[in-house]
Structures are given as C-alpha cells and as structure tokens.
Amino acid sequence: MRGTAVLLAVLLAAGCSGAPPSGTDGDLIDDWALPSSPAPFRPVAGQCHEALTAIAPLADYRPVECAELHVSETYHVGTAADADVVPAAGSAGAKAAFRECSERAADYLGGSWRTARVAVQVVWPTKAGWSGGARWFRCDVTTADLDGQSRTSRTGSLAGELAGASPLKLGCFSPTVDGETVTTMRPVACDQPHRAEFAGLWRAPEITYAALESGTERSAAGCRTVIAEFAKLPDDSDMQYRTGWISYNPTRTEWLSGERRVRCFVYFAKRTFARSLKDAGTSVLPVD
C-alpha cells in the first residue's frame, strides 16, 4: 500500500508539472481559426438549369450538369450597383446588367447572340435575398425561336457555339405568311429552295416599343439598308422593287432592357432561291 501511494504521488506530480506535451504550446485556443463573416448566397457561372426565370429563389436553386437535359445556362455572374431594391425593368440598373450580359454573351458564345436562335436573360435575387445583402445578377443563355419566346431543352454547353458553323445561326428559311403576318419561319439549308434569308441587324432609334411595333415604314427603311449591304445592292428607292423584307423586333422585355437590334431578312412572296443571296448583286436581284 505504501508503494502504491508513492507511485501515485509521483504520477500526480508529473501531471501537474506545467510542461506541455511535446509539439504543443500549451494554449488550447490560439490555433482555432475564427469563423468567417456570414455572406449572402452568390451563384456561380458554368452551371445549367432546368428552367429559365427572371428571379432566382435560393430554395429553387438546383443546377444540373450541362451534359444533362436543361433549358438555360449561366455563363456569367455580375455585381449590381448597391440600391434599396432590386432594379426594376427599364431602370438604369437593369439596363446596365443586361448590357453586361449581352457583351459577355458574345465572348462566351463566340459571336453575336442576336444573329442566332438564342436569347439572353438577366436573373436577379429575390427581394428577401436583396434585403439580406445579395447584389449579384446572373446572366443566362437559352435557345429560342426568332421572336425570343419559345425556349427549348438541349444537352451540352453553348460555350463557343457561334464561333463556327452552328444550326443555331440564322441563315435561310421557308416562311409561312398569313396576310402581312409571318406565322412560321422554318430553317432550311441555303442550297435548298427557300424564300427568306437573314441579312443582318438594324439598330432602331430610341422610341417607344409601341412605336416600334406599329412603325412598319421605319422598319422597312432600316431593313432595306441592311439588305442592300448584305446583297451588294444600291441602297436607293429601287430597293423596294428588288426584294421584300421581314423583321423580328426584340421582345418587350429586351426592349425595356435596352436592346435595340432588329433582325432583318430578305423575303420573296413567290420567288425561291437555292443559294445564299449574300453579295448577289443586281444581276441576281434586278428591279422587278
């Protein structure tokens, strides 16, 4: 018993000697990293989504691999100017975000998105997210029809899609026209019979959207100038006797965001071609 008591006293003395274990400094708290400051959620580029929306609630943020079936793709996330509320459609903040998204889209796609069956969408945080400090906007791209309305699912990323040949690039079309309204524009190869072809973009002036939609004379003059340059024709009063035209305006949302580029097409009601009319000249398109 006496030996046991002596051994216990030795062990207690060793435990209370104050010397830290080898490899430590004896301070139990100085090596703990401080927790980072809380920050609002911010999405990242390079992710795809099953839907295209203008507002992105965190609860609905469920990106998918771009190799899977999806509707939209985030190619850029920008930082919005500080403001009390999410920028409203048509505001300076909303226009600045759309302009940045449009410019970044050209770099990402490898060409102008307005020259393809593609649409750009600015996606904002919710009001609650904005109130919590979120100041981001997402730039999403999706395939769309000519009037920018119908979104279609696809697999694979759109990165570099317009840098080379692409079925999304606007080319030749077989239109269906009811009176003065184009009801369908079916893409066809330019070496197949067709009556319409994309000629380029006309930049509309700063007018109201209602004025753009109703001002056919303004659109006709603008598109005839575009067609004249495309087909190497004199841009004069005889243009109206050489070709017809079809125009597709930006959507109302795009117009409010500052998009002013109108898509212009060469069009013939009866005559068909099995070639592109680029640089065709007056011999192919005489005054009729």
Rank of each mutant, 00 (worst) to 15 (best):
A159M: 07
H194M: 07
R252N: 14
R2I: 14
T225I: 03
E213Q: 15
R104Y: 00
R186A: 08
A204L: 10
E206C: 02
A39T: 05
T243L: 09
Y75F: 15
S157K: 04
W255Y: 10
G156N: 12
H194T: 09
D107I: 02
A210M: 09
G222C: 01
Y241D: 02
V86F: 04
Q121R: 10
W32P: 01
W113P: 14
V287A: 06
G93C: 12
L256W: 00
S174V: 01
V86Q: 06
E213D: 14
P187V: 11
A92P: 03
D140V: 04
R2V: 12
S219G: 05
T24C: 04
L233W: 00
N249S: 15
R117Y: 06
A159C: 00
S72T: 13
E50I: 13
Y61W: 13
H49E: 13
Y209F: 02
I207W: 02
L34F: 11
L12M: 12
D178M: 09
A5R: 13
P57E: 07
A280Q: 03
T253R: 15
N249H: 14
R252A: 15
S150K: 06
V77S: 05
I246W: 00
M239K: 10
I246R: 02
K270R: 14
K127Y: 11
R154S: 05
P187T: 12
A220P: 05
C101T: 13
A221L: 13
S237W: 08
A228L: 07
S36M: 08
L58K: 11
S153H: 11
L168E: 10
A220H: 10
V6D: 13
A83V: 07
T184M: 03
A269R: 12
S257L: 05
A94C: 06
S247V: 04
Q121L: 07
L285M: 01
L158T: 09
A51L: 03
G171M: 00
A159S: 07
A45N: 01
T225H: 10
L162C: 02
G18C: 05
W32D: 08
E213V: 11
D25V: 04
S72R: 03
K270Y: 09
T251M: 01
P38D: 14
P21E: 09
